[in-house]
Design a protein around this nucleic acid. Structure first.
Lengths: 151, 151
DNA sequence: TCTTAAGTAACAATATTTGTTACATGAAAA
DNA sequence: TTTTCATGTAACAAATATTGTTACTTAAGA
């Protein structure tokens, strides 16, 4: 299954915007992501509606941050891009008639619910400022990662 | 992203097989899943290779359980179907050159790793016997779920 | 008025799971 | 021995979701 990279992409461009004092066009941001400007506008639209960024048209226009860097968390950004499904695993039917299938689904859903709660909770405890500080810290402490890093 | 339902499907048919004392054909199992017999053979092949089930050809043939119901866990079945990716969320690039993107990816991966470890750990603590017992318990304790259940 | 840049709809490309067909292999029954 | 049944597997089609692209509109500034 193709993975949804909108959260990762948006966080990437937000950090770049934080290091710029002027507005940046969709084309500039698309260069960071090696993608198409329309993809940037589409993905950023959720953040604009929630007031985390502002877009202006015409000469000198583009995208400006207006989120509170200290209070907005990765979970807020996850919500802003539309709360995409977390798991690639699922059920054949959501509301099966078969009792056996109901039992299997509920047993699996127990585990899925816990894992999702953990993940979202972790995202909710990282602010954009934390992420930026983490970026700076990584650069200072682990410069060797600039060359190559495993996955 | 389309969700992978192989784990759910396989557990479903395994529970049905547990309630049968004869071998069952791919066609019978496919009826439970409302799918095609070839899908059953394809998905079961991993379990066959690991010795959790045995398939016999010809008249009276089909699939027979030979897993230790007390020791084989949902995690073993997850492995048997090929350890499909857990998350629908991911990164645009796995090994980006951009330092910002590296920092974002690693921050997200920390959360993903924890959530995946929790999920897999939960699956590893549920044996097939547990699941069967849970099924029986659900039937006894919550018969109203037979009619409808939310999701 | 012209140029720049976002907003958006519509559609193509891409990737993954699922569904299907076709054919080979093997085992049991007739 | 031939027929029938059932799995094994490759190849391909269908369905679905994300990503990429084009075309056009709206709006702001030079």
């Amino acid at each position: 299954m193709k993975k949804d990279s909108r959260l990762s992409s948006i966080l990437h461009v937000l950090l770049h915007m934080a290091h710029s004092d002027r507005s940046m066009t969709s084309e500039e941001l698309a260069t960071f992501l090696q993608t198409h400007p329309v993809v940037v506008r589409r993905t950023m639209s959720g953040l604009r509606e929630l007031g985390y960024v502002r877009a202006t048209k015409g000469h000198g226009g583009g995208w400006m941050l207006c989120a509170n860097w200290q209070t907005v968390t990765l979970r807020d950004i996850y919500d802003a891009v539309g709360c995409p499904p977390v798991f690639a695993l699922g059920h054949r039917l959501e509301e099966p008639q078969c009792l056996v299938e109901q039992a299997v689904n509920e047993a699996l859903d127990d585990a899925f619910r816990e894992a999702e709660a953990l993940l979202i909770g972790r995202l909710a405890h990282v602010t954009l400022a934390d992420l930026a500080a983490d970026f700076s810290r990584r650069c200072r402490q682990r410069p060797q990662r600039r060359i190559a890093h495993g996955h």
